[in-house]
Nucleic acid binder design. Structure first.
Lengths: 189, 189
DNA sequence: TGAACTATGTATAACCA
DNA sequence: TTGGTTATACATAGTTC
């Protein structure tokens, strides 16, 4: 018995998915609430369950935070030019930067792989350029930022395609969220 | 060494608060992302750090979810009449309801206390009405829903007053989030 | 169907480099 | 500060009642 490790991918069994949503949903709201209280951070969360029901938490209120958010273009990639995006992408290489910009889970995984790779290279006391398929391999640490950005876009496009295919196949059923989220993720400081 | 238990209240030490925000912020985004992927739930999060910086995650996009959220009045208490609110408050007593409606952490704690109290009463094989100050005692399980709702409002008002006072005292510094959030929390099913 | 349990994975508070 | 490490508290997957 007891908890077991699971892969972070769509849970196919409807029942298990529902149970997981219930438990984890509770967890997310709780964590958000704690963050808000502990650190005096303003937090708003909106969640739509697989069945389409909406749940939300907001301090001071969802509307005010949405309004505040929409007014400042900073964290919203859609509002950013390539230069700004590149500067943000550089965050993980810049010790003075304090947020790591990521595109959804897929890229989180890529970044983690990149981190590991970086360690390996460090241990080997040498850095060799890795040139590989974006979907199968991790980016090397010395890859150009422009190239990294292109790869990010490539991954996003690929995921969107997969998502669209799944939408067709499942025919009306809510498809798994492969990716597509826009995410600016806290990393350090 | 090692992790120690902490109370969920504003961290006064600025440095510790900053570190905690960084680590927990990362955790919240990760959890939200996982929920989205595992359960095909659409999730949007907006976080303003203590220093006022905005960070966000959204699938499929923050704008679309906000839009969807604002269109359906269900989870937003401000849009609800007393009858609907009461029906939702009833959720924790109704075995067929699947979301528990709560007002921020303060009420989460109240509900948990209520749960414990319920257990105690069950063990004692008797239920006695508890009539007490809302801020000091837990509500009894058989309390009227209308009364429970009033208490919720009372807590919220009290917290808002405290918050306003703190804003004056700290004079410009971001005050701790005592409460004030509107929250509908997943509970079961 | 929902609530509880339990073993285990994860997150993270306090330290330290 | 940014980044690790360690020891623990907390979350939760799988199962049972």
């Amino acid at each position: 018995m007891g908890r077991r490790r699971i892969e972070i991918k769509w849970i196919e069994k409807a029942e298990a998915r529902q149970v997981s949503f219930s438990k984890r949903g509770y967890g997310v709201f709780k964590k958000a609430s704690e963050l808000s209280v502990l650190c005096s951070a303003d937090v708003a969360i909106i969640v739509f369950s697989p069945s389409g029901k909406a749940f939300a938490f907001g301090h001071p209120s969802i509307e005010s935070l949405v309004d505040r958010f929409l007014r400042q273009p900073a964290p919203n990639q859609a509002h950013l030019g390539p230069d700004v995006i590149e500067a943000q992408a550089q965050a993980h290489l810049d010790p003075n930067a304090y947020w790591l910009r990521l595109q959804s889970m897929e890229l989180l995984n890529l970044m983690e792989a990149s981190k590991k790779r970086k360690e390996e290279l460090k241990v080997a006391s040498g850095a060799s350029r890795v040139n590989c398929d974006i979907l199968l391999e991790e980016p090397s640490e010395e890859m150009g930022l422009q190239e990294l950005e292109k790869r990010m876009m490539g991954v996003k496009d690929a995921c969107n395609k997969v998502r669209m295919l799944l939408e067709e196949v499942t025919n009306g059923m809510t498809p798994p969220n492969i990716n597509g989220g826009v995410c600016s993720m806290p990393h350090n400081s």
